[in-house]
């Protein structure tokens, strides 16, 4: 319960350790309820927030040691974010293609117009869109699913090694959700990108991830191979999460009747 908190020091992330191997791309799901520190963790991995203690290493380098724009850009080239709500991630007054071109300019070094457009088009093709569909359009002119794909395409321009996706499908329509989730699978298998998939949706995490990490109030309570942890949870909190998932199969025996 967040509730009637005063002004206390708050350990949003408390003693969390994990590692992903560069040579073996995987989808690593971080699961937890709101307030469990998932987003704070994502920000620290993206190096926009410095940890109070501890080290985050990327390819052996401590990311808090990066000084200056060049080193930071170098890091951003390899680690890219995707955010929850694409309508909030994009400025409503800015055309979507400008984000793609800016990424191509800064991260992929395409200074000419033709190169930028080619890079944007190539990235958009990877997510099932094309530059012709996106060019000159404002965010509100695209559907949520298209916009989220465009966000993923933008992240792909610099050919990153790691994508940090913070609740990427929770704002996307049910009919399009699985196509985004499947896209992550394709990215892992074909482009060999590792993905940190932050979510509270256990069902999609079970569907796509290789490993999961369950967080509660900033602490890791359980971690391991996704299928194993989610089908046979050990920690009481994971068990609680597992039992709270509603399923379409509950139609005969409502989960809620017992609770009510």
């Amino acid at each position: 319960m967040g509730g009637l908190l005063g002004r206390t020091r708050f350990a949003a992330i408390d003693d969390v350790s994990f590692s992903l191997e560069a040579a073996r791309p995987e989808i690593f799901a971080i699961i937890g309820e709101s307030g469990s520190g998932k987003t704070t963790l994502a920000r620290m991995i993206l190096n926009t927030l410095a940890p109070s203690k501890g080290i985050i290493r990327f390819l052996g380098e401590d990311i808090s040691r990066f000084r200056g724009r060049r080193e930071q850009l170098q890091f951003m080239r390899k680690v890219q974010p995707i955010f929850q709500n694409p309508f909030e991630a994009f400025n409503p007054l800015k055309r979507v293609d400008r984000y793609l071109f800016a990424s191509a300019y800064h991260f992929a070094g395409h200074h000419g117009r033709a190169g930028r457009e080619a890079a944007a088009d190539e990235a958009l093709k990877k997510v099932g869109l094309s530059l012709a569909e996106v060019k000159g359009r404002f965010p509100h002119e695209l559907s949520g699913g298209q916009l989220q794909r465009a966000a993923i395409a933008r992240a792909l321009i610099s050919s990153p090694a790691l994508i940090v996706a913070d609740e990427p499908v929770s704002m996307v329509d049910a009919s399009l959700r699985m196509s985004i989730v499947n896209l992550f699978k394709t990215l892992r298998d074909e482009l060999r990108v590792s993905i940190i998939y932050i979510t509270h949706d256990l069902a999609t995490a079970y569907y796509i991830s290789d490993r999961v990490l369950i967080m509660q109030k900033g602490k890791v309570v359980e971690t391991g191979p996704a299928r194993q942890v989610l089908s046979n949870p050990q920690h009481p909190y994971t068990v609680l999460l597992r039992e709270s998932i509603l399923s379409p199969d509950d139609v005969d025996k409502s989960h809620l009747a017992g609770a009510a």
Partner: peptide, 16 residues
């Protein structure tokens, strides 16, 4: 998606 089910699920093509 359901827990315990790993068969590939398809998204719907096209936009609303």
């Amino acid at each position: 998606p359901r827990i315990g089910d790993v068969t590939p699920k398809k998204g719907l093509s096209g936009a609303p």
